[in-house]
Amino acid sequence: MIRARDLAIGYGGQPLQTGLDFDVAPGELFMILGGSGCGKSTLLRTLVGLLPPVAGAMEVAGLTSPASHRERPRFGVMFQLGALFGSMTLEQNVSLPLEAWTDLDPATVREVALSKLALVGLEGAGDKLPSEISGGMNKRASIARALALDPPLLFLDEPSAGLDPISAASLDDLILSLRDDHGTSVVIVTHELASIFRLGGRCLMLDREAGTSIALGTPEELRDHPPHPTVRSFFRREAEAANP
């Protein structure tokens, strides 16, 4: 589903992370971990085509250059802030990609949009504006919009950030359900330890000091056999190695 080879990411041609090599298989849950400012979100923005790679090669859902305004998107993205359109109701937000990329009649679009909202636990909230709902609901609605076109690949940027433990756990269950029941590949950027262990999957850990990935494996592997001091500090919540 995703293949990155010697990928370098950054802004304005200045690399933040280099030499990234990883693959994401269909139906896999893949997490990008790391401390604040290490380039997790930059990697996600590069993979979805919002930033050009500084160097190297990548292929995402069959596309080597994902940024395109001319074809139906092959993946869905949930942004860190939700990024719902403030002037539209939740139903209109979810309907937008359906209206843009399908020939469905308005009644069908509405039904599909409401069913996507129900899928993420937002039954009856279709007529609400994003400003009228909580942070957790906002993220759920954003996932519903990302799922509107039934993409085989989903990118989620910090889905649990800023949520209370119950909402975060509920969102984690939704993500697991999407992978298990729908076979959706999910790429998640996160640094929430509770979510990391709850979701499982494989983790790619980035490090700002090293300027590249320092670990690849399951959360348990990385916790029990950390290949780098920063990995150990991250999983043990220690400050020393991360902030020398």
Binding site: G49, L50, A67, P73, F79, A83, P97
Partner: peptide, 21 residues
């Protein structure tokens, strides 16, 4: 501007919708 800082413009791009259009 508010849409830009709230990542709404990016959301449009990844949905395959041209923000200018």
């Amino acid at each position: 501007g508010t849409m830009k800082v709230g990542e709404e413009i990016d959301a449009l791009r990844v949905m395959g919708l041209d923000p200018v259009r």
